[in-house]
C-alpha cells in the first residue's frame, strides 16, 4: 500500500462489536446493547451507525442511548428489511459490524442549554430522541423545562414503556402521550401526536423543538408549530433516507444539495425550508 493510503483508514470497513444484551421490545422492534471490541466509541446524541451483518449488508441506525450512560451503546431496530431482519436473529454474544458514529448533524446539545425543550416523537421517532432526552435528564440543571410528546400508532407498539412511565413521574418532565387507535387497556389520549401540541405548557416561542417521526408526520407538526410562531431556527428535524456509504460519497441520501448522512440526520428546519425534497 502506498504511503498516503497507509495513513488513511478505510472508510467502508466496519469494526467488530459484541451484542451484550438483546431483547424483543414487541413483535417488530428489538433492543440491542453493543460494546465495541476495541473499546472505543464516543458519540453525540443524534449520530447514527452503519450496522453491518456480513453476508447481508449494512443499514443506518441512529443510536438511542445517551453518551452519558457509559456502558456501550444501544440501538432499537425495527424488522423491516434484509439487514434489520438479520439483526433480529442475533443473540447475546454475537458479533456485529459497526461503522461510526456518523453524521455531523447532531442534536444541539450546547445551543439548547438554558432553554426549554419540547420533544415531539412519532412512533419509532422516540428511539433517536431518547438519546438526547436522557442526555438532558443526566445534565438536568443545564436545561430548562422538558416536555415530551409521544404518539404511537397502537398500544402494543409503545416503546420503552417503563422508561417513559419513569419520565412521566418526574416533576421536572412534562410527558404527554397519545395512541392513534383506541385500546381497552389504554386510558390516555387517543389521536395523532399533533393533537397534543395545544396541551404544551411551555412557551413554544422561546423553546427548542425537536421532531422525529415517520415522513408523513413532519408537515403536520410544522404546520401546527407555525400557529405558535416557533422560530424556524429553533426547530430540529431528524430525517431518514436511504443510505449506503454513510460518508457522503454514494449519493443515495441526497436531499437536493445536502447529504442526510453528512449534513444530518438532524437538521435545523430553517436550513431545510428551502429544500423541496426535505419533506
Amino acid at each position: 500500500m502506498c504511503q498516503c493510503c497507509a495513513e488513511k483508514k478505510d472508510i467502508y470497513l466496519p469494526q467488530l462489536a459484541t451484542v451484550v444484551k438483546a431483547e424483543a421490545m414487541n413483535v417488530t422492534e428489538r433492543y440491542l446493547r453493543l460494546s465495541m471490541d476495541d473499546g472505543q466509541f464516543d458519540y453525540t446524541p443524534g449520530q447514527f451507525v452503519e450496522v453491518s451483518v456480513a453476508g447481508i449488508g449494512e443499514a443506518p441506525i441512529t443510536i438511542t442511548s445517551s453518551p452519558t450512560q457509559k456502558n456501550g451503546f444501544e440501538l432499537v431496530i425495527r424488522k423491516i428489511g434484509n439487514v434489520t431482519n438479520a439483526v433480529h436473529n442475533l443473540r447475546e454474544g454475537a458479533k456485529i459490524g459497526i461503522r461510526g458514529p456518523l453524521g455531523d448533524g447532531m442534536y444541539p446539545i450546547e445551543e439548547a442549554k438554558g432553554k426549554n425543550l419540547v420533544f415531539i416523537c412519532g412512533g419509532l421517532g422516540l428511539v433517536p430522541q431518547r438519546s438526547f432526552i436522557n442526555y438532558v435528564l443526566d445534565n438536568r440543571d443545564d436545561y430548562g423545562e422538558v416536555t415530551i410528546l409521544q404518539g404511537t400508532k397502537c398500544y402494543e407498539q409503545r416503546l420503552f414503556v417503563k422508561e417513559v412511565a419513569a419520565w412521566e413521574e418526574r416533576a421536572d418532565v412534562d410527558l404527554l402521550e397519545t395512541i392513534d387507535e383506541p385500546h381497552n387497556a389504554w386510558k390516555g389520549s387517543v389521536g395523532v401526536v399533533t393533537k397534543l401540541i395545544p396541551k404544551i405548557k411551555t412557551d413554544l416561542k422561546g423553546a427548542v423543538v425537536l421532531v422525529c417521526g415517520p415522513p408523513v408526520m413532519y408537515k403536520f407538526v410544522l404546520m401546527s408549530l407555525e400557529e405558535y410562531e416557533v422560530p424556524h431556527e429553533n426547530i430540529f428535524l431528524n430525517l431518514e433516507r436511504k443510505m449506503k456509504c454513510g460518508v457522503g460519497k454514494c449519493g443515495h441520501c441526497q436531499i437536493n444539495n445536502v447529504y442526510c448522512c453528512m449534513d444530518g440526520p438532524v437538521f435545523r428546519y430553517s436550513d431545510l425550508a428551502t429544500l423541496p425534497e426535505a419533506i
Binding site: M1, C5, D10, Y12, L13, P14, L16, S52, A54, G55, A94, K95, G97
Partner: peptide, 17 residues
C-alpha cells in the same frame, strides 16, 4: 471488491495494487 469477511467474524479491506 471493497472487503472480504467471515460470517460473524472480521472484515478485511481489499485493494487492487
Amino acid at each position: 471488491v471493497l472487503m472480504t469477511f467471515e460470517i460473524g467474524g472480521a472484515y478485511h479491506s481489499q485493494y487492487q495494487d
